[in-house]
Design a protein around this nucleic acid. Structure first.
Lengths: 108, 108
DNA sequence: TCTCTGCCTAGACAGTCATCTAAACAACCG
DNA sequence: CGGTTGTTTAGATGACTGTCTAGGCAGAGA
């Protein structure tokens, strides 16, 4: 099992991802996009799900995008967002490995 | 597959966990504790691994503890910290499920 | 009891963040 | 071309965060 302590650089990269997830609004945005049939969601639908202003939603989407968790494309009038599964998997795996190491006991 | 959108309350609880992970120092602390043979680490060892002051490390440990990710106990002079695997597993699973939903296509 | 060491709390300070309003940009449609 | 709608950018503001220094509490040992 790979349970080495993180290097400073690795921790910084991963923390950027977790930090983006550390806001209830962004988590719900991610969840709304992930749960979406077709995998793509228009911004207007996301905005409707909150009592926040458009610019605020736009800001949160930008944070998620800059963290590599989602990506987007404009098609005509509308902008569509989707999940980047590989990035989520990396973060998930770190937690999974740490939890496993802790619950199954010492590594060495 | 369970890929419902998160409720506001659920998102708030989960975000508290991810927020605690969203700092490089805290991520490294968690990793150091998880990688530790025996599952427990003394604060003094953690402090030595950083160029930060004791109070700063203490602060970060408190944040992790209040997020339910670690727990601690004083035994004589020293305080020992350990991972709470169940909490990490919950966060890991959320990401895993979202990634899976996004990569395998529509849920319905 | 006195002192030493390990750890935490309190308070201060600079930097970051979530949110808003106002304004700009982009695409469609008359 | 002008107007309407969807989305983002810019700037402001109040709140929160990471870090420090100073000081306090807890346990061990002389």
């Amino acid at each position: 099992m790979v349970t080495e302590a993180l290097t400073e650089d690795a921790a910084a990269g991963l923390a950027r991802g977790f930090k983006a997830l550390g806001d209830p609004v962004r988590l719900r945005l991610l969840s709304l996009i992930a749960a979406r049939a077709g995998g793509e969601v228009c911004v207007c639908e996301l905005t409707d799900a909150f009592t926040l202003t458009g610019p605020t939603i736009s800001h949160h989407l930008k944070v998620l995008r800059e963290a590599g968790l989602i990506d987007c494309q404009r098609r005509g009038t509308w902008v569509y967002y989707w999940i980047v599964p590989a990035r989520l998997a990396v973060l998930s795996q770190l937690l999974d490995v740490s939890a496993a190491a802790a619950s199954t006991g010492p590594t060495r």
